Computed example of a mutant assay.
Amino acid sequence: MNTSQSEHLLPGGAISIEALPKISLHDHLDGGLRPQTVIELADAIGIDVPTTDAAALGTWFADQANSGSLVEYLKTFDVTTSVMQTVEGLERVAREFVQDLAADGVIYGEVRWAPEQHLARGLSLDQVVEAVQQGIEAGIDDVFSSGREIRVGQLVTAMRHADRGLEIAELAVRHRDRGVVGFDIAGAELGFPAGNHRAAFDYLAKEYFPVTVHAGEADGIDSIRGALFDGRALRLGHGVRLAEDVTIEREDDDNSYVTLGPVARWVRDRQITLELSPSSNLQTGAIAAWGDELIDHPFDLLYQLGFRVTVNTDNRLMSNTTISKELGLLSDAFGYDVDDFEQFQQNAVAAAFLPLEEREELAEDIADAYAEV
């Protein structure tokens, strides 16, 4: 299990954030590898990596990702996906992924990844999904053996710049009773609207299969609109640029007076979930319109206005982060306390792609744990 994570404490320094139960909705499998695992898997299949020192490789990923551009940020995935082309590689990465989630206090997680990116060594789409599921289940068993519990579901993702959306949607539905809980589209957002995959979204709607869509990260309101009305998205992957549809009319010492545009109002009033990833949003330039520091992130504005915000990592390796670290950063920036942390987790529970009864159980577990803090 990865033991390199440092502890993050609640304001006042008395309580470990890692010890609090958390929900993870937006976390990419190919963005969560351990550097040492990248090195070992690359060596096993004869692939060169930038360095064979684990600490230095972790730094390389973080430096490369800290570009201010989603396109440049995505190039780091060429390295991670290259070592995830075999059953052994996929199983190991998925198993360790679950272990690392549990080490951060996650009790329910959804892991998203694009099967079409893992076929270079001859595996089929079904074989790669099965390999990841085997790894997830092994990781869950490891966590259980250590005296804890975690539940994890797959979000099968189609690459928005490719033309395999319907095929990947059918793959997701084919595995809906074998670990897959939802569908996503990801990759380069600008110039590749959700409407390009309308056939896939139509199919998923007919199958009553839940959808989240990356939108409002590298493109603005039109992209979000497409995710909602072409994709029928129940959640927005990032969605941070929804704040472009929020106009601050005036501010005084205690209050901001705002007007919501039609898309922002629809998202808030329908409680469509925002899968916000603060550190990643800084790295990719998603919040460039507001600034280049975490205090500039519109997270708090959206939270105060009643949007269903959640806290996520996006890519733990590239952002050198965990959910606990993200919560600590947000607390430092906006003064959040344990009650806010609980609200973020309850927001995520409500949005999880799980049956109602399981969401209610998770909500009770979260409430009970935070009541003891």
Rank of each mutant, 00 (worst) to 15 (best):
Q99W: 09
V111F: 09
V87T: 15
E96L: 06
D100S: 14
V128K: 00
R95S: 05
E91I: 13
F97T: 05
G89A: 03
H118P: 03
V87M: 02
Q117F: 11
Q127N: 07
S145K: 09
E96C: 03
G105F: 01
A120L: 09
G147Y: 10
V132P: 02
Q117V: 11
I140Q: 09
A131N: 01
Q134S: 15
V129G: 05
Q127T: 05
V111T: 14
R151S: 15
G122F: 06
G109S: 03
T86Q: 04
A131S: 14
E110Q: 13
A131E: 07
G147I: 14
V98I: 12
I150D: 00
L123K: 07
E130A: 15
A120N: 11
D100W: 07
Q117N: 12
G105W: 10
L119H: 07
V93L: 01
R148D: 15
V106I: 15
A138R: 15
D141V: 12
A138T: 15
V106N: 11
V111E: 05
A94S: 12
A94V: 02
S145D: 15
V129F: 00
G139L: 05
V111C: 15
V87L: 06
V98G: 10
F144G: 07
R151W: 09
V111G: 01
V87C: 00
V129L: 00
E149T: 13
A131Y: 06
D104M: 05
L101Y: 07
S146N: 11
R95P: 04
E110P: 10
S124N: 08
P115R: 01
R95D: 04
R121W: 10
L119A: 06
G135L: 05
L101M: 14
G147T: 10
Q127W: 02
A102H: 06
E91N: 03
Q134N: 13
R112S: 07
A114P: 06
R148S: 13
G135V: 02
E110V: 05
A120T: 13
A102Q: 01
G147E: 01
E116N: 13
G122K: 01
Q117P: 00
F97M: 10
A114N: 08
G89Y: 07
V143S: 05
Y108L: 03
R95N: 08
R112D: 02
V87N: 03
G105T: 08
I140K: 12
D142L: 08
E116H: 09
E88Y: 07
G105Q: 03
G147K: 06
F144I: 15
V143T: 03
G89H: 04
V132G: 08
Q99T: 08
E96S: 12
E91G: 06
Q133L: 06
L125V: 02
L119N: 10
P115A: 00
R112G: 09
A120Q: 14
E130W: 04
I107S: 08
E110M: 14
A114D: 05
D142S: 11
S145M: 11
Q134G: 11
D126I: 07
V87Y: 08
V128H: 04
E88D: 13
V143M: 12
H118V: 04
Q127L: 00
E137N: 13
Q99K: 11
G89T: 07
G105S: 04
D104S: 03
I107D: 10
G105R: 13
R151D: 12
Q117W: 09
A114Y: 04
L101D: 08
R95W: 08
L101N: 01
A114T: 13
